[in-house]
Design a binder for these strands. Structure first.
Length: 598
DNA sequence: CTAGGGTTAG
């Protein structure tokens, strides 16, 4: 399976004051990075920095007598390709072909790269065919580029086939780039172990793994939240293989740590990279800004922006998109809007991500009309709403109770060629349930006929929760039964939602039974499970298990949230829960709740 | 001499 973002975020801890003040302090006082943007030895063929110049130079070159060398043409193609004008580069290449201008393997590999980056890898293979017709022997550059094209298009089976063919038929000698590309493909499909195996294999074949090969796997492990494995590989790279990490290595690790809420370690890595004289770059700062924004700590995020500017880095669209999203998450739509409006004066054009963030912010703030305006603005700016945009808008409409409009947009999205993903269905099912339409939700779920959807435990969690919220405990039970029949494994959330549903109906014995069952089936109840069951006990005046639950929580290092705590205190006050439990309760109160007087 | 691989945003 290709890696996708989870439908539900992982539990994270907030950065404490010490960590982030250290982090900011540390960054602002370390030495500024050096910049060198001068390229004194570039010829005019690689110096072109806009398309017009490139085309003019090309025309002039084609008329020269004698013709410039293939080397000069390749330099020009490279320059255009570096500007990411892949179509133009391909156009020039085609002109070279039809006009019998000089072409070699290098020109071919540039053309193939352009095809691949345009998601036209098949055309890349057509260029490979033309190599044979022109008696140009395809080399390792050409095959590695084609391999990358297949990986870019998620054609992993074909990528593996090509890779094996290269080795078996000795099409070329695979080098460190060929291996790294295959490793990237494996990682993209979650095969980290096989990727590590390939890392070992290349070493055995006498092709020494380099920092890129390691980075690829380290980053993939970080994205899969296997950060400890990532560090294992990092240490192996540095200490056993004596390969120096780069800023990209650190960026991946810091990003992974931030996303897991491991702020103190992220801060430690920042310090470490400065120690080894690697300056944080634009991406490093963007990672920190995004992490702070997602924690709702926009002030700290803005502080990082200030520091990066002081250090000579120019905030880009990624920077501002993170900030805008941060303000949206806090519901500070005025700030989000003014930041959005300031983009053009900063020379930045909002993209579909910017618009979707803003739209989502308005939806979450229940300003559905504003959200619709933003939605229409997207097409007016000749951008295309994508799946995420539609998902956000549909969610907003459902929240506003406008089921009909949501339905219409769902149809429109498919008409526009945007394929609904699992997230879309999750949003719609949840929305229908919240609009008292569980039956519709369940039938849509069965109607969707998507095998991945019907085996998605998160979707079951949504439906069970929704059924319970609508007071349809029978439907909730049936769904829970249905998933076990299918051989699906309920997760903590499934159990918790079901236990909550049973508690809500006063079915405490059944809830307790399920609670014991989950533990037995190896699914450990989490913090939330305990809180839900505890609330169920209290609300239904079943006090027998309260002390045992509290003791369990203490033993597991769990804590109480504000709601459960105040409910408990109420019951102690009325005498239904014994005062002797106060000491135990006190131990379960997290520091944050102690500090904030409410 | 020119060509291929690794990091950040909804």
């Amino acid at each position: 399976m290709i890696r996708t973002k989870p439908l539900q975020p992982a539990f994270k801890s907030k950065p404490n004051f010490i960590t982030h003040s250290f982090l900011l302090h540390h960054l602002s006082f370390s030495q500024a990075s050096l910049h060198s943007n001068s390229f004194p030895n570039r010829s005019k063929y690689e110096k072109v920095n806009n398309l017009d110049d490139a085309f003019n130079l090309f025309d002039e070159m084609t008329q020269r007598q004698p013709l410039p060398s293939v080397f000069k043409f390749n330099q020009l193609l490279t320059a255009v390709t570096k500007m990411k004008h892949f179509s133009s580069s391909l156009y020039l290449f085609k002109q070279m072909c039809v006009n019998r201008l000089p072409i070699d393997a290098c020109s071919m590999s540039i053309a193939i790269k352009c095809c691949c980056r345009l998601h036209r890898t098949n055309d890349g293979f057509a260029v490979l065919g033309s190599c044979f017709r022109r008696a140009i022997v395809p080399n390792v550059f050409i095959y590695s580029t084609l391999l990358d094209g297949l990986v870019i298009e998620d054609r992993i089976v074909e990528a593996e086939r090509l890779f094996k063919k290269i080795i078996k038929h000795k099409l070329c000698e695979p080098d460190v780039v060929t291996f790294s590309t295959m490793i990237k493909g494996l990682c993209k499909f979650g095969n980290n172990d096989i990727a590590i195996g390939l890392l070992r294999l290349m070493d055995e074949r006498g092709c020494k793994p380099c920092v890129v090969a390691y980075n690829t796997i380290i980053d993939s492990l970080c994205k899969d939240k296997m950060i400890d494995d990532a560090f294992k590989l990092f240490k192996e790279m540095v200490f056993d293989k004596h390969i120096l990490p780069t800023v990209i290595t650190y960026n991946s690790l810091i990003c992974g740590l931030c996303k897991l809420g491991r702020w103190d370690e992220a801060s430690k890595m920042l310090k470490e990279m400065e120690d080894v004289r690697i300056s944080p770059d634009l991406v490093t700062f963007n990672i920190l800004i995004d992490a702070y924004s997602k924690e709702g700590m926009v002030d700290e995020a803005e502080a990082v922006v200030k520091i990066m500017v002081e250090r000579g880095e120019c905030p880009d669209l990624v920077t501002y998109n993170s900030l805008i999203d941060g303000y949206c998450l806090r519901g500070e739509m005025t700030k989000a809007r003014s930041l959005f409006d300031s983009l053009t004066s900063r020379g930045l054009n909002p993209n579909v991500i910017t618009y979707s963030s803003l739209l989502n912010g308005y939806c979450k703030s229940l300003k559905i009309e504003e959200a619709m305006l933003v939605f229409h603005e997207i097409t007016r700016k000749r951008l295309k709403p994508d799946v995420v945009t539609y998902n956000n808008m549909i969610q907003g409409l459902l929240r506003a109770g406008r089921c009909g409009a949501a339905r219409k947009l769902f149809d429109e999205m498919r008409a526009q060629g945007q394929i609904p993903n699992q997230c879309t269905y999750g949003i719609i099912l949840d929305g229908l349930c919240n609009n008292q339409q569980v039956e519709e939700a369940v039938s849509l779920f069965h109607l969707a006929g998507d095998s991945k959807l019907s085996s998605n435990i998160v979707v079951y969690n949504i439906l069970i929760d929704g059924a319970s919220k609508c007071g349809k405990i029978d439907i909730a039970r049936a769904l829970f039964h249905d998933l076990t029949i299918k051989g699906l494994q309920p997760n903590v959330r499934t159990y918790t939602v079901m236990i909550g549903a049973l508690c809500g109906e006063g079915l405490l014995d059944e809830a307790k039974h399920l609670f014991l069952k989950m533990d037995k089936s190896g699914c450990l109840p989490d913090n939330v499970t305990y809180r839900v069951l505890l609330q169920g006990c209290l609300k239904n005046q079943k006090y027998n298990d309260v002390e045992m639950l509290l003791q369990d929580m203490d033993g597991r290092g769990y804590s109480l949230d504000a709601t459960t705590l105040s409910l408990l205190i109420d019951h102690v006050a009325t005498g239904s829960v014994d005062r002797s439990m106060l000491k135990l309760i006190g131990r379960l109160v997290p520091k944050e709740l102690m500090d904030t007087p409410s």
